[in-house]
Simulated assay, not measured.
Amino acid sequence: MHIHNLSQEDSILNSFISEIRDVNIQTDRMRFRRNIERIGEVLCYEMSKTLDFKPKTITTPLGKSETKLINEDIVLCSILRAGVPLHNGLLNYFDEAENAFISAYRHHKENPETFEIIVEYLACPSLEGKTLILADPMLATGQSMVATFEALKPFGTPKSIHLVSVIGAQDGVDFVNNHFGKDTHLWIATVDKSLSKEGYIVPGLGDAGDLAFGKKLQH
């Protein structure tokens, strides 16, 4: 797998990451969502440099302009609900992409330290021969990303796969590295070193879904 960790170089991205982590700023839900969206835009811009382009002639009021435009059939797939702001950031740049959404969540049994990933809802176009961008803001254990991809397999074989996350744990990065093909790309804003015993990223930022949309009732 090709791993692109954007935190390895200093950029304005550091400001957005620091704000979504900061307990004094992240309580502003609108700002939290917008920062996740902006991080998605930065990741999307960097990813675009690796895609296929084709030449095109544009007619202006005063003449002709030669340029190159993306030559990819893109499908953006996000994991609900935390993935929505990140999805919006990607869609701001890949505005002609098709879209897929999947509901995947952790189901804890008697032991809070063990869980399984449950997929309950999936809406997806054909993936055959297309560029799949699979987005999940928090890459903790990596199990949700893998379970989501398994659920997408009946929709066809993508030409290429790009994984997009905001914050990951090294364990999660290693997990997806072992479960996706060598030509898969992972685009991630930053990677933390550890997971808690419950499988949450440390220091991370907390629950991205709750911070973006409010706390949920457990069932």
Rank of each mutant, 00 (worst) to 15 (best):
G168M: 05
P61T: 09
S144E: 09
E72S: 13
L163A: 01
H185G: 02
G40F: 02
T57W: 09
A140C: 12
L69C: 04
P154D: 05
G181M: 00
I167K: 11
T57I: 09
F16W: 13
V84S: 11
L195R: 02
A147T: 03
V191D: 10
K216E: 15
S65G: 05
L90T: 00
Y93I: 10
L69M: 09
D28C: 06
N178H: 11
D73R: 12
N24F: 14
A208V: 04
S11T: 15
L205E: 03
E46Q: 05
G199W: 11
L62K: 10
T67I: 15
G199T: 13
F101R: 11
T148N: 03
S196D: 04
N111Q: 04
K49S: 10
L62E: 00
L43M: 02
N14R: 14
N177V: 05
L91R: 06
T190G: 08
T141I: 08
I167S: 05
K54G: 09
N92C: 07
H185P: 04
D28A: 09
I117W: 12
I20F: 00
A189E: 01
F16Q: 06
Q143I: 13
R31W: 07
F180I: 02
V164C: 07
S11Y: 09
K64D: 10
N92W: 09
L132S: 01
G209T: 11
T148E: 02
V146H: 04
Q218C: 06
I20Q: 01
I58A: 15
A151Y: 03
G172M: 14
Y45T: 15
E37G: 00
T141H: 15
A208H: 03
G142Y: 00
L205W: 01
E128R: 02
D183S: 15
K197S: 09
V173M: 14
R21E: 01
H87R: 12
Y105N: 10
H179Y: 02
A123M: 10
N92P: 12
E19K: 05
L186N: 08
H87W: 09
C124S: 04
D210P: 11
E96N: 10
N111A: 08
G40R: 00
N24Y: 08
E110W: 15
F180W: 00
A208M: 08
F101C: 12
A169L: 07
A104E: 04
I117G: 09
F16K: 12
L90I: 00
T60D: 01
P85H: 03
Y45L: 15
T157R: 06
M145G: 06
R34D: 13
L6A: 08
V176T: 11
E96K: 08
F94N: 07
N99L: 11
R33S: 06
D22I: 00
L69V: 10
E98K: 08
N99P: 13
L163F: 07
T148S: 00
H179I: 01
D210M: 07
D22W: 01
E113I: 12
R106D: 12
N88A: 10
D183K: 08
D28K: 12
N111I: 10
F155C: 06
E96G: 12
P137Y: 13
L51R: 05
S165G: 10
F213R: 05
H2E: 15
N24K: 14
L13E: 05
R31I: 07
A82W: 03
V176L: 07
T60S: 03
D183C: 14
